[in-house]
Write a protein that binds this DNA or RNA. Structure first.
Length: 488
RNA sequence: GGAGCCGUGGCCGAGCGGCUAGGCAAAGCUCUGCAAAAGCUUCUACAGCAGUUCGAAUCUGCUCGGCUCCUCCA
């Protein structure tokens, strides 16, 4: 195991602290997953790619990680008014489908999209509908502990009572009094005692499609309770990392912490980790603003704001060139720059195997390795990690041009560094893998014909071959005594 | 209205008291039949104003501009 001095920023304490797992060698991580009532857009993907990096790096450091990411497939209301249809029922009525057909469709879509971005599947992916009993049980405990009350079949969390004993607004940094006075007056909330109270369990109306029996009659769970119930079930009442998008801080995660304290008297997570938003022209990408990109529109280039399509790995690389806690602006120019940079990185990575071995090493491999790990240990700073890798790219190219030398042992270490960081930790992979034996053979034939033409100074033929190959994705590079090709 | 974040060279984006970020683009050079690739070199910036400091992109205050949250949102 690499000696880790990993530091992570905790939203609750508002500082970057040394990470030491609660149980040495083991890490429990919970990330709020998607509500599967529509297609995942790129902003959603950014969050899950960010947590994928954390998952991968923790695994790389040798931890046994249990990564739990839920699927919200019930109980998420439109407008959080604690009444009316949930998002699935609404969409189901619209499309004349069963709510669970909606859930299935978008769960499959979510998995396909994330697989294209080469994210690892979580260890456990629990659903809200599969944990109704746990949610009811948790609501009962919170009632028994005195922090929730029933009104006509609906259970509300008593925020004002809770806030007298616990720092309810600690995560968001808000002032409770201002929240109480500034919160908007919403319709249909006269059943609540306090205006900040939120529902743990909601009574079903006659037309409600998704409903379950409970001690308080038929109903369905509130949104926030599912994460509290499922994280407690699979990771215990205290675990290492709880993550999600920054937009979950003021409501969802604030309420989750409140539920956990009210039930278990504990803050569930040692580190609260939040990813920043993906923006388009400076504005948050979101469905309601109508500026969201679907991954497929990006890959194919069919979105009106794009000049061309970009591959999943280009997009992943693009996202990793910004830190997860910064906003990242999405544009053609930025994507194009990333595309070229990514190709350069992959080309150099492929060159390592063919480097000539000498007696001595003239590059500072130790320094390079140390700076790469230093960057990753600094709150998963992938942009700096990549900057260091490009220093390595320069060195690889110098080695390839015989301007520096490397011995056998260091060549292995260089190979290990690039393989582990580029592929395992950053989760990048080669695309357009051609290199089959038949293609190699075919290219040998074509290149030898071109070589003959060059020898006869028939440059129009040799250039024709080179240009045509370029248009179909083969880059021809004439070396001193040999010619190589790369697939782009 | 309240809470908070941000404004870095042509573009993207790190840094967060002194030390080269990096990628892309542009220019020059080396190499080459010409290219490409690669290497080297150049462009050395921190919204504005004032202050703290031996020293500020980095700390403080104000101004301007943008964004997020307070309503579902990753």
């Amino acid at each position: 195991m690499v000696i880790s001095k990993l530091k992570i920023y905790d939203t609750l304490k508002k500082e970057t602290l040394l990470f030491n797992p609660i149980h040495p060698g083991y890490v429990g991580m919970y990330v709020c997953g998607p509500t599967v009532y529509s297609n995942a857009h790129l902003g959603n993907c950014r969050t899950y790619i960010s947590f994928d990096i954390m998952f991968r790096y923790l695994l790389h450091l040798g931890y046994k990680v249990r990564y739990v990411r839920n699927i919200t497939d019930a109980g998420h209301l439109e407008g959080d008014r604690d009444e009316g249809d949930d998002k699935f029922a609404k969409k189901a009525k619209l499309e004349q489908l069963e709510p669970m057909e909606i859930v299935q469709r978008y769960t499959v879509d979510f998995h396909q999209v994330l697989a294209q971005f080469n994210t690892l599947p979580p260890s456990i992916e629990p659903t809200a509908t599969g944990h109704i009993i746990e949610q009811i049980e948790m609501a009962r405990k919170i009632i028994a502990n005195g922090y929730a009350y029933e009104n006509n079949g609906t259970i509300y969390f008593d925020v004002e009572k809770y806030a007298k004993e616990y720092p309810y607004t600690q995560l968001s940094g808000r002032n409770l009094d201002e929240l109480l006075t500034n919160t908007r007056e919403l319709d249909g909330q006269e059943e609540k005692k306090g205006r900040l109270d939120f529902a743990l369990w909601i009574k079903a109306k006659p037309e409600t499609l998704m409903r379950w029996p409970s001690p308080w009659g038929e109903g369905f769970p509130g949104w926030h309770i599912e994460c509290s119930a499922m994280s407690s079930k699979y990771l215990g009442s205290e675990f290492d990392i709880h993550g999600g998008g920054m937009d979950l801080v003021p409501t969802h995660h604030t309420n989750e912490i409140a539920q956990n304290f009210a039930c278990h008297q504990t803050n569930p997570a040692k580190f609260w980790v939040h990813t920043n938003m993906l923006t388009v022209n400076g504005q948050k990408m979101s469905k309601s603003l109508g500026n969201s990109f679907l991954p497929d529109e990006l890959f194919s280039g069919s979105h009106p704001l794009l000049d061309k399509g970009y591959s999943p790995m280009t997009v992943r690389f693009f996202m990793l060139q910004a830190h997860y806690r910064s906003t990242l602006d999405f544009s053609n120019e930025a994507l194009q720059a990333s595309e070229k940079g990514f190709i350069r990185l992959m080309k150099a990575t492929k060159l390592i195997d063919g480097l000539k071995v000498k007696d001595a090493t003239t590059i500072d491999l130790e320094g390079l390795t140390a700076s790469v790990y230093q960057a990753l240990n600094d709150d998963f700073n992938t942009p700096v990690t990549i900057a260091q890798l490009f220093e390595g790219v320069r060195l690889i190219n110098l080695l390839n041009d015989d301007k520096e030398t490397i011995n056998a042992e260091d060549k292995l270490a260089l190979k290990k560094l690039f393989t582990e960081i580029v592929f395992e930790v950053l989760g990048l992979k080669e695309e357009n893998v051609a290199g089959s034996e038949k293609i190699d053979g075919l290219m040998d034939v074509i290149l030898s014909i071109r070589q003959e033409a060059k020898a006869k100074k028939d440059f129009s033929t040799s250039d024709f071959i080179r240009d045509r190959l370029k248009t179909i994705g083969f880059e021809i590079n004439d070396g001193k005594d040999s010619t190589s090709y790369l697939t782009l």
